[in-house]
Computed example of a mutant assay.
Amino acid sequence: MNAYIYCLNDDKRLNIRAGGRAFLADTFAGPFLSYKGSNSEWIVTRAKQYHKHDMLFFPINIPHTHWYLCVINARLRTIQILDSLGPSNNDRLELKQTIRGLEHYLDMAAHDMGPQETKWKDYRVTTWPWSEEVKSAIQKDTGSCGLFTLKFMECWTGFALRPKFAQQDIDHFRLKLAVILVNSHLNKIKESPGSRSKEDDAKPDNLGEDQHVDIDSDGITPTL
């Protein structure tokens, strides 16, 4: 998921939307916010960046189960939830933990900032109302929640999905995603899927199941 999020962040057209300036967080942000530990200084530095945006997009994970999107909309002072399965019957504990941590670090960052440095008139996000933006389930399978979350991040304007999409669009997106990542200029080992160089043909094929490819903000690097 993070590979595509970094590609979205690289597209500057997605930074400014109808709802204002957007910050697209990776999947590590929520757990970091929920944990008040040794990385607090780094998180406060990141929170200062949050203050300069109108909307914060956080992928939220229900461990081993499901992904959905939370948008902290500072202009509307609303927590917007985009869940491909529609409104949830559980209490979204993982989201509550993220919001509590976010408020904590926004407050810490604000103490080091002047009033002119923040776009936020109110950062008591734990008091903001929640809004379920997807009124009924649009996911029709059991394995596309992460892909839906990525498209929510790409298409949510702050007020609506533009364009709207359905399960068949996500199925198509699944097929395109690998090509998008391989063709991205962030990819430092740029080759088309399935292609091999002459050097590759001269080497034993030792890419096993234990090797995979990770992409980060500096590009793609193989990880054993």
Rank of each mutant, 00 (worst) to 15 (best):
G101V: 01
R13W: 00
M55D: 02
Y50F: 14
C7P: 00
Q139F: 06
M153E: 07
E209S: 11
R92A: 05
A29Y: 02
N61L: 05
D107A: 15
F57A: 08
K121L: 15
Y6P: 11
S38G: 06
I99Q: 02
A25E: 08
L106D: 06
Q49K: 10
H64V: 12
F23N: 00
T127G: 04
H66T: 11
P193V: 15
T126W: 01
R196F: 04
V213Y: 13
I5M: 08
T65E: 12
G208F: 07
L69D: 02
M108S: 10
N89V: 15
K188S: 14
M153H: 00
I170Y: 07
Y4E: 11
W128C: 02
P163I: 10
S192Y: 10
A137H: 09
T27W: 01
L175N: 11
M1S: 12
T157K: 04
S40N: 14
G20P: 02
Y6L: 10
F159Y: 11
G219H: 10
I170G: 09
P204I: 09
S184Q: 09
L150C: 13
L106S: 07
C7Q: 13
N187P: 11
F152V: 04
A74C: 04
I72F: 03
E154Q: 14
L181K: 13
V44D: 05
V134D: 06
D10C: 03
Q97M: 07
E191P: 00
C145R: 09
L224K: 07
Y6M: 08
F23V: 00
T65Y: 08
D107Y: 11
K36P: 01
A22K: 03
E117A: 14
I170F: 08
R77V: 00
